[in-house]
Design a protein around this nucleic acid. Structure first.
Lengths: 342, 342
DNA sequence: TTGTAAGCGTTATCAG
DNA sequence: CTGATAACGCTTACAA
């Protein structure tokens, strides 16, 4: 009763032709080799049997899996779903699937995931978990596996990808704070091993310099992870600096949220006592109390672009240089004029 | 220079045995047939050549793809990533991949996704986008495709899956509100075509009855989608009821958020004028202003369980009856004592 | 214990 | 234009 799926052979038998003829009739690229009338008979027979090409047989023969591996640190982190959606929205219509795997930024898991994906013959890899110094990525490039970095990148020549414009974002953030009268601005830097952490720290310094300011070393805290707990810990450190900073720029929204929590524990109010900014504009940070001033990155768009780059590399084009997406400053309630007594 | 991946044949050649011997030596299930010493030589040769089995050849031969299709309405909706994570966390160690596809609750897209997944030979389907009356699901069951419903289910005999205990959740919510003195409690019902929408509405009525209350029809608003916009629209309607309800139970968190927005527009305060509750406990609803009282569902756990059920069905077991997961009432600031003047 | 060979469903090359 | 045939890389009876 469990009828196995129809194959080319079944369709051929039904129409009374050879299966290779069916194959040709069904492939738009070779259909022109077939008498239109026959092609139509074949098409309707295939329909009738609800023929569905066997993807693994196709892949085995053509060495094309029509699948793309996607490595994300953790899909549960709200910045990744839109990116994944962006990938899918351009890949699905072109009959590619995305195999999304979580790495938890763990070397072992990443290696396992990679082996699995390569064993499954993915045509390209989209990597959202790059380390600044990433031997895994280097290996992939050396093995000529098409690979696209998103959001985070590695310092590797020949690596294609998409990132968000940290220089622009930081400049806007700092200009905004300076405009509100802040002079003593602190930063909770993201992990130095990640390009986002390092680059935001670097551009933070650069942005201060533009306004003739320089960061007091006591106003820079280095986090180990992009997490709320780390944000809280780092903010505790920054609150000890004397004089106290009047604003804290979080390396991302989670770090900012942690900082907010630290303030609250110290009985300080945001933005009255200290202004706080985030980075990424995660969902719902506009509804927090106070709503978070932050920088919006185009994650969905990054996914779409990454998909396009992957497709191009699959077609054999050389990797394009890293693309930089513009960002947008979003001013909300967590930043305010520096209080007069400060 | 682009060395193609090593195959069994390459390993065999290196060791000087037949490729079938290599196949056996590498498969834990048949390794015992091989002289331990030879097996070890083969293992190290495979290692040396960094042999990786070709998944499509394996699937073609065995009719097992070691992949599971996952249909979600939209991965961007924060209740799904944890579920997907739960699936992956139990499937990945057993060498299964998850192919996650977004349907946007659109019939056409769902059909396309399904064709694609079946063409790729997924061993089972995990469906988080079931309709209460779902011909697609019925078709899958009829075709004997192993299918597991998560979160939302269909009224179909023989369908296995996991849902969250709406009766328990609603009872707790209503008891909480009644305990605060509320008697006139309204509900923004989720879409009637979805099991979650329908079941929460039904259990809402049942929960009121337990306290000797009955819902005024003017206190039930029917939403078309689980969205903030719909929540706002429905709340507008409820605010016209006379006397005005003192509490509104949202069909999910988004509907509640919309209601909150409507209140604000009317210059009403939550919880002072009207209490509001959500459902699902999405990330960050604990940080909103006011923090949302809601029901926490175990989405990650649901994913893990669904994975287990899928695996069992793949092994040939008959589908188990729908499993119901316990939920937890989370009381926060959006609910309060009914105001004295009411 | 190991080798032989068939076949999974395709595509692609070569004849006719 | 259509048919025959050889892979693609693997598992698995069956033989030795």
């Amino acid at each position: 009763m469990i009828r196995r799926a129809a194959t080319l052979r079944d369709v051929a038998q039904m129409v009374g032709v050879h299966l290779s003829t069916v194959s040709r009739a069904l492939d738009p690229r070779t259909r022109h080799l077939i008498t239109p009338e026959l092609a139509e008979r074949i098409r309707s027979a295939a329909q009738e049997l609800s023929y569905r090409p066997n993807a693994q047989a196709y892949s085995l023969r053509t060495r094309r899996s029509h699948s793309i591996g996607v490595l994300v640190p953790d899909i549960t982190n709200p910045i990744f779903p839109p990116m994944v959606r962006g990938l899918e929205d351009v890949l699905a219509p072109r009959h590619y699937v995305t195999l999304v795997v979580n790495t938890d930024d763990d070397g072992g898991k990443t290696q396992d995931a990679l082996n699995m994906l390569r064993g499954r013959g993915v045509d390209a890899l989209v990597v959202a978990c790059a380390l600044r110094d990433d031997p895994m990525l280097a290996g992939l490039l050396a093995a000529h596996v098409p690979v696209i970095a998103v959001n985070r990148v590695a310092e590797l020549t020949g690596l294609g990808g998409v990132v968000h414009d940290d220089a622009q974002g930081m400049a806007a953030l700092v200009a905004h704070l300076v405009g509100l009268g802040h002079r003593r601005i602190a930063h909770i830097a993201g992990p130095g091993a990640l390009s986002t952490g390092a680059s935001r720290l670097a551009t933070f310094h650069a942005a201060l310099a533009v306004h003739g300011l320089a960061a007091d070393p006591a106003c820079i805290a280095q986090s180990q992870r992009f997490s709320e707990a780390e944000g809280e810990r780092c903010a505790e450190v920054l609150l000890q600096a004397k004089p106290r900073p009047t604003a804290i720029v979080g390396g991302n929204d989670l770090l900012a949220l942690g900082a907010l929590r630290a303030l609250r524990r110290h009985g300080l109010s945001c933005p009255h006592d200290i202004s706080i900014t985030g980075y990424n504009d995660m969902p719902f940070v506009d509804r927090l109390d106070p709503p978070l001033t932050t920088v919006r990155i185009a994650t969905y768009e990054a996914g779409r672009i990454a998909a396009g780059l992957a497709l191009r590399q699959i077609e054999g084009e050389a990797p394009a240089p890293i693309e930089t997406l513009p960002v947008e400053l979003i001013v909300r309630g967590s930043t305010g004029k520096v209080s007069s007594k400060a």
